[in-house]
Design a protein around this nucleic acid. Structure first.
Length: 358
DNA sequence: AACGCGGGGCA
DNA sequence: TGCCCAGCGTT
């Protein structure tokens, strides 16, 4: 009962027509400047459009050109990135800007291989920037576009691996039109995010419905084939708010690994639900050389990162003795809740800091 | 509170 | 190819 997949060249005309009619206005759609397109594409990685817009506007106002970005310090860039998360994106953006100035005369490269060689730029970002800014007919397959293509062409199997992956890439490449490839790529992603939704696709208003294998075989809900996902891990953490003269202890993480170089509250991981702060006391002694007493619970919340679900408990005390000396951190500091605003902190720690400032 | 998702670096 | 990185919007 398999419907015939469409010819890849049939996709772009109805899609572009739909995009011209319904495409949303976005600040980075007002420009053909490859630098701005690039900044927007990096910000849009794992972050939604509405969250990106204010960050994008602030960023290009502060750094209007690749030269301005390259001339700044990494810390300035991270400060503007604060709140967007996944800070390696900002570090890569900054280091790539320096490379563009040093090696490419300050012009965003037009050569595909040179673009792919920039830190933080992979197949998606390279295709997006080169197609949108330079009209190069390259595909830009993000998660939304992948879902649309799997449904339209009826691609079975995990599209990230094996035969399905090859098929997807071949058809995606053939489907990119020579004219308006950048608009086509944006249209495909926008269709995925606005119409071809994961759970409840709105096929009635989809410009590709008549071509779509999934629609014609009524398999919208089984395509794309779900990926195998590892089982969810659960973790427990306890964080400490240590007060001294109206300030709390924060520590700067090492420059490698998770949350590299960011400031955080003292915290530890535990194998099971933490019922009492007893485990924190020896931890604070070992990691900071501090003797804490009277830790009392003030907050708890949960957050997830990919495959792990964390349950966090926050304890505070004013009874801390000793001079803080970090064993695993690069630095420690005592900061008032207001001063914490100026530090770059990971999302869960920022949450606690904001609570202290209220 | 549970759930589901993404793109790039790197060995 | 498989792990690492380490957040948020939706339900």
């Amino acid at each position: 009962m398999s419907a015939q997949p469409p010819n890849p060249t049939e996709i772009s005309p109805p899609l572009l027509e739909w995009f011209d009619r319904t495409g949303r206005a976005m600040p980075w759609r007002e420009t053909r400047d490859p630098y701005r397109i690039w900044v927007s594409e990096v910000m849009l990685q794992q972050t939604q459009v509405t969250a990106v817009i204010p960050y994008y506007e602030r960023f290009v106002r502060r750094f209007p050109s690749v030269q301005a970005l390259a001339a700044s310090t990494e810390n300035e860039v991270l400060a503007l990135w604060e709140g967007l998360g996944y800070y390696s994106r900002a570090r890569n953006l900054h280091s790539a800007a320096r490379r563009i100035v040093d090696d490419h005369d300050g012009l965003f490269p037009t050569d595909h291989a040179q673009v792919l060689a920039l830190p933080g730029v992979g197949p998606y970002t390279a295709g997006a920037v080169l197609s949108i800014a330079y009209e190069q007919p390259l595909p830009a397959i993000d998660g939304n576009a992948e879902r649309v293509l799997c449904r339209v062409f009826g691609i079975e199997g995990d599209a990230r691996r094996g035969e399905a992956r090859k098929t997807l890439r071949r058809l995606a490449t053939e489907a990119v039109p020579a004219r308006r490839p950048g608009d086509y790529n944006q249209a495909l992603m926008e269709l995925g995010s606005q119409v071809c939704l994961p759970d409840a696709p709105n096929c009635g208003s989809c410009p590709l419905a008549t071509l779509c294998v999934a629609v014609r075989s009524n398999r919208q809900h089984v395509l794309p084939t779900p990926r195998q996902r590892p089982k969810l891990q659960r973790c427990y953490v306890a964080a400490a708010v240590l007060w001294r003269r109206g300030r709390v202890l924060v520590a700067r993480r090492p420059s490698e690994g998770v949350w590299a170089g960011l400031w955080e509250l003292p915290w530890m991981e535990a194998g099971s639900e933490i019922e009492c702060p007893d485990a924190l006391v020896p931890f604070l002694r070992d990691a900071f050389g501090l003797r804490a007493e009277g830790l009392a619970p003030i907050d708890h919340f949960s957050y997830g990162v990919m495959n792990t679900r964390y349950r966090a408990a926050v304890y505070e005390t004013r009874h801390v003795r000793g001079r803080a000396r970090p064993a695993q951190h690069e630095a420690v500091a005592w900061r008032s809740p207001t001063e914490l605003e100026g530090l770059i902190m990971p999302a869960p720690h920022r949450r606690v800091a904001r609570r202290l400032a209220r």
